[in-house]
Amino acid sequence: MKVYLKVWRQRNAQDPGRFVDYTVDGINPDMSFLEMLDVLNNRLISQGEDPIAFDSDCREGICGTCGLYINGRPHGPLPRATTCQVHMRHFKDGETIVIEPWRAKAFPVIKDLVVDRSAFDRIIQAGGYISVNTGQAPDGNAIPIPKEDASKAFDAATCIGCGACVAACKNASAMLFVAAKVAHLGRLPQGRIEARERVLNMLSQMEKEGFGGCTNTGACEAECPKGISLENIAFLNREFIKAKISF
C-alpha cells in the first residue's frame, strides 16, 4: 500500500518547524506504524537526508515511550492502543496521514516528533511515591485491602506516563496523569499516610510545569491507551478538598 505523509519537522527547540510531505510506497499492511516510519527513515538515510526523529522503545504498548499525534488523535485511530500498536491496516491505501508531536508548553519539542516529557518525572518526584519502606511482596500481601480498592488502585497504576492525556486535552492538562498516580497510591493503606502532601505537591508541580487545568471534556479518558477513567480525577478532586479542609 501507499500513503502520503505530512510530517512535522523541526531541527531543534528554537526552530519554528514546518510540515514536510513524504510519499511512502510498498508498505505491507501488517507493518506497524513505526515500522512504516522506519522504512521511510531508511530511505532518507540512504538518500543522505536527516531521518525523522521519533520516540519508541518496547514496541509492545507497555513502556509509554512512543507517542505521535496522528490525524488529530494521540496514538492514532485505535482505541486503547499506543502508537506502536497501530498497524498500517488501520489506514486506507492512498490515505494522507498528518503526524505531529504532542503539543504542550510543558512538553517542548526536542526534535521533529520527539518532545521532552521530563515534566512528568518532576511531577512524580514531587509526590508520586511512598516514603516508607513497604517491604517485599509477602509484606504487601499481609495487609488486607478491600477488593474494590485494590482493583481501582491497580487500574490507576496501569498508567504508562505516555502523555496522551496531555496531548488530547484542549488545555494540555496533566490532570489524568496526576490523578492516576494520586488514586493509585491514595486508594491503598500504604499511600494514605502521605495522601495530603502528595495531592498538593503533585498538583502544585503540575502547575509549575505549565500544564493547564481540567475542564472535564473527557478527551483524555477516551484517548488514554490504558483506559484510565475520569473517575480518578474525581478522586483527585476529593483528595484536594480533603487536603484543603484538614490541617
Binding site: K6, F19, Y69, N71, G72, R73, V98, E100, R103, A104, K105, A106, A168, K170, N171, A172, S173, G210, F211, G212, G213, T215, N216, T217, G218, A219, C220, E221, A222, E223
Partner: peptide, 27 residues
C-alpha cells in the same frame, strides 16, 4: 482567568484536531 491559564498551556496548536472523546459543549 482559567481560560487564559489553559490557553497558555498550549502555545503551538495542532494542525489537525479531531475532538474525539469530548462533546461539542465541553469544548
Amino acid at each position: 482567568v482559567l481560560t487564559i491559564r489553559n490557553r497558555r498551556a498550549r502555545t503551538v496548536d495542532y494542525a489537525v484536531k479531531s475532538g474525539y472523546g469530548s462533546t461539542f459543549a465541553s469544548r
